[in-house]
Design a protein around this nucleic acid. Structure first.
Lengths: 204, 204, 204, 204
DNA sequence: TAATAAACGAGACGGTACGTCGAGTCTTAGG
DNA sequence: CCTAAGACTCGACGTACCGTCTCGTTTATTA
């Protein structure tokens, strides 16, 4: 049994897609995720509802893609502020001073979490991902894991330089200072100042 | 100006409340939080919709109370399996061996997270709390913080016994091994075996 | 298998029903049957769509009932202009002069067909009834046949008085002068003046 | 101001037109007029929607043309069963016996009304024509009137032969026996047997 | 015989309405 | 006066078609 004949993506309207991304992100920021509706996104984007249903299967999917797109743009801008449009290949800097390097990146992360443009969709997706395993997996795979791999890479380099004990698994070590930060932020469980973000490193 | 006259809680039907708790928890487990509706809860509980709206202001509130009730019952059962109905006063045991004591409790926590009766509502509430600050605060205040304070108390005792460095803030220390566990579980980000739960302690 | 638990008609809102009748008739007259939508009726009546779907199964059904109601009111008004609200018991007058009596009634019929309040819904229902047998049957049974039976009764009386040949079936005889009139009107097939309406009688 | 440049009918695809006629008639017979859609016709005919919109302005127009085409074919077949494709020039036979001649033709008419291939589109068009004056006029002009003129012609011949009173208008006389038949059929108002069809003639 | 321009199939698009579901409010009857 | 029941208005859902608008791809003259 065929699945209703998949749409032809070569004829897809780029303009509509962009408008949908923008509308989705704006609405989530303005009125919250629950009150953001497919109809609302369509109306705001000046697009027929069917155009959304043709390409995405749920509100969460729309938002996920919109957010990935937003993140990609932000990453590019961060990596090459002068040349927008190229493939970002960001890496955590390696000045030789592990603590300073991590501090720098954690600060950038905190800044992003507190940026109102990111906060609402980020929370919404995180929440949705906790209840919807498929979305959760995509979220982790496409957004979270790539980010964490940067830390793993930097930590591995530090191990080779002898700056970190060789018996430590970098994947687990990084969770020790990333998770508490995420937790606090997600649960409004406390201020997520730069100082707190770095506490995880202090016991070193 | 009439203020809609708040309901008289002394005349409240205990039977209906219990039925609503049970229906809410059952539905969330069976069909998920999103598909659980107020109408569905009312129908399943054999109760009028108005009876729900009279005492709670949202689906999330119903579930939160139902879950608090469930947790209280479970805690009582754990503390005094012989005498159900009394006020629980659980504490983390203090055998003098901090690591062993923490292991014991972390194991119990993992067990609860994996118990299907707890998992669905727990996830649903956590997710909702990330997007709805008021609910998030209640969730933390009524469920999470009391639990964490047990750890704080035990850690402080350990400090007095000289088993933990005195310059460590117990509140922050415990987040180091609780948050990664929570994170993994919430994000389906990996197995949350007993072994993993204890990794946070290993580097000691 | 139950059919979704039928609604409780004792609790039905009379106000809504009236508003729906009025809105349906008004819209059909103003914009035509095709462009009259259930949403439009609901909006105009200040009523939720569900209230329409709860009590009727289609746009045609709504209009049929509305039109029956309108006709009943008109019949009452014609029969007892002084006492609105009573059960109409209209009859074709019997002055002894058959031709004069029929002329009188045919004129009234033509007047109704040309009354803009009646024309649009009447045409719409007639058209719908030709394509939808169930509706057609209801239309004939509830609106047309009662009307025709008045003629049958009067013709039978005329036969007893010796004013009409006894071997004629009144049911068929009346179709001879009613059908051509209906046809012309329905098909815009020619003017339906009083004169034409009476042609059917002339060959007598 | 551009006028959208009318299509060049010399380059029209005959194959597509035939396919559209066939699809339209088949769908109306199978699922009814309301559920017949332009998209459905296009899909069934293996044709782009635009090809329909290019040559017709509405579903009713397509069906009207398709039905005219069907009728023309049927008439040709009836007139010259041996030579399909020529211009039909049917006439009511004149054997000198008016009643017998009319009976013959009325029988043929009843047969056509009961032929399932004709019934559904015929009803649909009749219904549409009652609500849409333009279509109604075309319907009468292109299908109904030519048919009726045959009767007029034959009746006039009968008048010249002295078989019919000279003061009777043939146009009106024929409605006396055609309309009741049409009425009954359109309204499912009774059986339209051959006997009934001829009742109109009996009182002579 | 190639070019070229229209009709063609396909189907994405912005829309409107469908018929359904559930939210939250209000009314009725019963205990 | 709390309760079960459920009708009410409202708004969003996801689907079906509308009529318009590109896209290549035939097809059938015209250069």
């Amino acid at each position: 049994m065929a699945k209703k004949t998949a749409p032809d993506s070569t004829r897809r309207s780029e303009k509509s897609r962009r408008a949908i991304y923008d509308a989705a992100l704006a609405l989530v920021s303005e009125v919250g995720y629950q009150k953001t509706t497919i109809e609302g996104i369509a109306a705001r984007a000046g697009v027929g509802k069917q155009t959304i249903y043709r390409w995405w299967s749920s509100k969460a999917d729309v938002l996920l893609e919109a957010f990935i797109d937003l993140s990609a743009q932000a990453a590019e801008a961060a990596a090459h502020p002068e040349a927008i449009g190229e493939q970002a290949e960001y890496e955590i800097p390696d000045t030789g001073d592990l603590e300073a390097d991590l501090k720098l990146v954690l600060r950038a992360t905190v800044d992003e979490l507190l940026d109102p443009k990111f906060e609402a969709p980020w929370r919404a997706l995180a929440a949705e991902g906790m209840v919807n395993q498929r979305l959760g997996a995509e979220l982790v795979g496409k957004l979270l894991e790539p980010q964490l791999q940067l830390y793993v890479k930097r930590l591995r380099a530090a191990q080779e330089q002898g700056a970190v004990r060789p018996d430590i698994d970098p994947r687990i070590a990084l969770e020790l200072f990333v998770s508490p930060l995420a937790q606090r932020w997600l649960q409004y469980a406390g201020p997520i100042s730069y100082e707190y973000a770095l506490h995880g490193l202090a016991p070193r």
